[in-house]
């Protein structure tokens, strides 16, 4: 197993409001299982945090296969939120997650406001003892909730919560009412005005913003003349989406004062630098784990080298530098 030995005098501590991580490298929901899958390759203890697969109140089988299609530098997926459901997550997965010595972010998904309320209040009982001076990973339990608002809202004809500012604000407000945990609002890129969405989740009470979720896409097999995914449409991730993600991080940084977790096609340390320059205080690695399970570690050492070469003694110095006017 690969090790990460950071330099003594470099300060990797990452502050996302009250959520304090030992470093800015996180792994993304749906790409890192429940943390255990990667332990043979990369110890989660080296990571700032891991984000678990999206949890819904009840277990879900998800979509039929094929669930994956490769596109140029990208991956379409239609897993369809397959997950064990809240009860089994708490019973079978959360106890093991607490042994991984990293901060655990639980990603929650729902199809109604009630779903989100239920998840937020149930998970509140497992909050890691938090105070805003310590690095969260040193204690067990849940460090933060990441609210996936890209799910279809059954009451609004299946339109995603995250594509309408009013609905997005409502979801976050419901979660806020039911938890004291730091709330990360995860924005969908499938909108015209991302800044407007950022402001909406800020008024809803979000503490942190993460972006981007996948871009809705499709791929058709020209031999069979049918969509490749059984679900026909899926979410695009991977290097193909990175410029869109960087642009959105940049815009959100200008629109709201909340700390940002940047993701979307982030594959190398250079990509991580780019996201941080655009305004991300932390970065999250998703699809890149599939290509290279050591990607998060390589990103950490690359970030450190980039900073020290430029005389920055702290990772926080990088954040938002691309916004300088002179």
């Amino acid at each position: 197993m690969q090790k990460f030995n950071g330099m003594q005098d470099f300060d990797f501590t990452t502050r996302l409001g009250d959520l304090i991580l030992k470093n800015p490298v996180i792994t993304s929901s749906g790409t890192y299982g429940f943390g255990e899958e990667y332990t043979d390759y990369c110890s989660p203890a080296y990571l700032g945090a891991i984000t678990v697969k999206g949890i819904t109140p009840l277990p879900r089988l998800g979509n039929p296969v094929p669930r994956l299609a490769e596109t140029p530098s990208g991956l379409l997926n239609s897993v369809g939120l397959e997950n064990p459901g809240l009860e089994d997550f708490l019973r079978s997965y959360l106890p093991k997650l607490s042994n991984l010595h990293t901060a655990v972010i639980v990603n929650i998904s729902g199809f109604s406001l009630e779903d989100y309320a239920l998840l937020a209040s149930a998970l509140q009982d497992y909050a890691s003892p938090n105070n805003s001076t310590n690095i969260t990973s040193n204690s067990s339990g849940i460090a933060a909730l990441e609210v996936n608002i890209s799910c279809p809202n059954i009451k609004h004809g299946g339109m995603a919560f995250g594509t309408n500012p009013k609905n997005a604000e409502e979801v976050i407000a419901v979660v806020r009412k039911n938890t004291n945990l730091p709330i990360i609002a995860k924005l969908s890129p499938n909108v015209t005005d991302i800044a407007e969405m950022a402001k909406a989740v800020e008024s809803g009470g979000a503490d942190i913003i993460s972006l981007i979720n996948t871009l809705l896409g499709m791929s058709i097999d020209i031999q069979t003349q049918k969509p490749i995914l059984a679900n026909k449409m899926g979410g695009l991730s991977g290097p193909a989406v990175r410029p869109v993600a960087v642009r959105m991080v940049y815009q959100v940084y200008q629109a709201v004062p909340l700390p940002i977790i940047g993701m979307g096609g982030l594959t190398t340390w250079q990509d991580a630098v780019e996201f941080m320059l655009a305004g991300a205080s932390a970065v999250s690695v998703g699809t890149a784990n599939f290509l290279n399970p050591l990607a998060p570690l390589e990103i950490l050492s690359g970030l450190e080298e980039y900073c020290t070469q430029r005389g920055y003694n702290s990772i926080r110095k990088l954040v938002g530098l691309a916004h300088r006017t002179c």
Binding site: V65, P66, L68, N77
Partner: peptide, 24 residues
């Protein structure tokens, strides 16, 4: 099945089975 991670993390390559309780 089409696979992405190969190690069980992404849930891309699932197979549907019938459990002993009869549920999928």
């Amino acid at each position: 099945e089409r696979m992405a991670c190969g190690i069980g993390a992404c849930l891309g390559c699932v197979c549907t089975v019938r459990g002993k309780d009869g549920n999928l």
